[in-house]
Amino acid sequence: MSRYAMVIDLQRCVGCGSCSIACRNENNVPDGIYWSNKITETVGTFPNVRHHYIPTLCNHCEYAPCVRGCPTKAMHKLDNGITMHDPKKCIGCKYCEFNCPYGVIYFNWKEPHQFWKSNKVLLKGGTSSPQEEVEKIGAKKTPYFNPERGATLPASRPKGVVEKCTFCDHRVRKGLLPRCVEACPANARIFGDIKAPDSDVTKLLGKFRPFRLREQLGTNPHVFYVRDFNPAQYRPTKGGV
């Protein structure tokens, strides 16, 4: 059985967020919820300033606090290491959300995709309402709704349950890369089986000293980061007194 992991090469990442927008699109994620997200930081004082970007997503931890704390086993581990959620079992208690040290689990407080339920029309007779647009297209929820997401999880999650990144398990099972990986124009995301000695993931983890978010918590995250967002050169110096 494979054990899936992701390496994020921060040097290749340009902070463009294609991952996050493509994820929205692939997984029919409603506005306000970010399965794929980022930590940004502007460091320094003018003119010595840079802005740094670390892409984030569910870490698919080996010892996942979200799974341990779930009273109904809605949040569970798959054999391939993916941390998966079953909304049918979810009672919306949000323990997982509170237990997750990474803030990547979101609760659906509202009916998703409300924008598209509106029947307001901008110009009478000249434009359509969002609802009319969705109906005319013959789509569900949103005009660009992706039904393929529905293979392993409701294609759109209802109000009252949590949701989060699944490493695009619906794609991975078909031999396709997670959408954020495919959509990354910088090739900054590398996905694969960490148990396979010849996978790209394994090779990269042997080449660099990777870091993971909040490693000290012992969750054994399976999203690894290598290299630096800004590997700028500078002239050698010993500083001075």
Partner: peptide
């Protein structure tokens, strides 16, 4: 690709597009 390309989907299906001559 790039991030902005995905936003094309929200443009083509923008309900505020004019749907008829006016």
């Amino acid at each position: 690709g790039c991030p902005r390309s995905h936003l094309g989907l929200q443009q083509v299906y923008d309900p505020d597009r004019i749907k008829t001559p006016m």
